[in-house]
Write a protein that binds this DNA or RNA. Structure first.
Length: 117
DNA sequence: CGATTGACACCAA
DNA sequence: ATTGGTGCCAATC
């Protein structure tokens, strides 16, 4: 598929960025929103995630958390506990639904995302 | 078309 | 530091 269809939908853009999140990393809604140029439209990112489950390929929404590194959307997963499990499985420390080493696993698309020049 | 919602973020008290 | 309220943008009812 043409990845150049970035002007398709705001959602698709969010999904793509989420899929680009490397293993063992996580980012926040605001960061993604900002990367997309929306800045404070962090809510839209979460809104987009609502459909993430019906996207194909599926979006690793478990790597997307709020600015606090808190798993706010884990309840939206088929199995809430799966979100924590996935994060822990990737080496991310999760305690009380919050990423303790969020600062370490934090991933910034505008920095580490290589869009193949 | 108008009002409400939403997996957030930021500012003020 | 913690809690509460407001702001943003788009989608859904």
């Amino acid at each position: 598929m043409n990845y150049s269809e970035n002007s398709k939908d705001f959602f698709q853009l969010v999904y793509q960025v989420c899929r680009e999140i490397p293993y063992g990393r996580a980012t926040s809604y605001g960061t993604i929103a900002k990367y997309l140029g929306s800045g404070r439209s962090s809510r839209m990112v979460g809104w987009a995630m609502n459909n993430a489950h019906q996207q194909n390929p599926p979006v690793p929404a478990h790597r997307v958390v709020n600015r606090n590194g808190q798993l706010t959307g884990k309840m939206h997963f088929a199995n809430p506990m799966e979100m924590e499990t996935l994060l822990k499985m990737e080496g991310i420390t999760v305690e009380k639904d919050q990423i303790t080493n969020f600062k370490k696993v934090f991933w910034d698309p505008s920095i580490e995302l290589d869009l193949e020049a």
